[in-house]
């Protein structure tokens, strides 16, 4: 066995075994980085139900705009989702609401809106997207956009 084969064989076996190791874990709960169970798109989503917390901006005459992730956390949708979820779970929805409102006050996309709300909504994917039917919503926190409608 040459030194090349010894080194190459060792690195190959260790890396392949390490990357395959997550097979021993539950794919739903054992995910990590970079050793992953790769559970994306694998979960059952009965009725395509989406029951999550999110942030909306509202204004006069029923004007409404869902607040984009860059005003909540950064451009990553899932990181914005987790930021909102953790704020709600730790009782800090009002703090998050005020932070988002301060950012919205500096954003031209929100000049016709005056209020930020952190809400929980329970929607069905096909009803919402295909038929335009919205599910029930509940407000966790509400706060004004500083400067109001500009």
């Amino acid at each position: 066995m040459t030194a090349t084969r010894l080194w190459g064989g060792l690195v190959s076996l260790v890396l392949l075994a390490t990357v395959a190791y997550p097979l021993r874990r539950d794919p739903a709960y054992g995910d990590s980085f970079p050793l992953s169970t790769y559970p994306m798109f694998a979960f059952k989503r009965p009725g395509a139900r989406v029951a999550i917390d999110y942030v909306v901006a509202t204004g006069p005459d029923g004007a409404r705009r869902h607040v984009p992730p860059d005003l909540v956390a950064n451009h990553e949708v899932m990181q914005a989702l987790m930021t909102i979820r953790r704020a709600v779970q730790s009782g800090k929805a009002s703090t998050l609401c005020a932070e988002v409102a301060a950012r919205a006050a500096r954003d031209r996309r929100f000049k016709a809106l005056d209020t930020i709300q952190v809400v929980f909504g329970d929607h069905r994917g096909l009803d919402f997207l295909v038929h335009g039917r919205r599910g029930p919503e509940r407000t966790h926190a509400r706060c004004p956009i500083p400067g109001g409608i500009r």
Partner: peptide, 19 residues
Amino acid sequence: EFLRDQVAVDNLRKVLLGA
């Protein structure tokens, strides 16, 4: 059906999160 629901969930989540 898993995939269809997954696509619906993913897109709806994006809409709700303003993306």
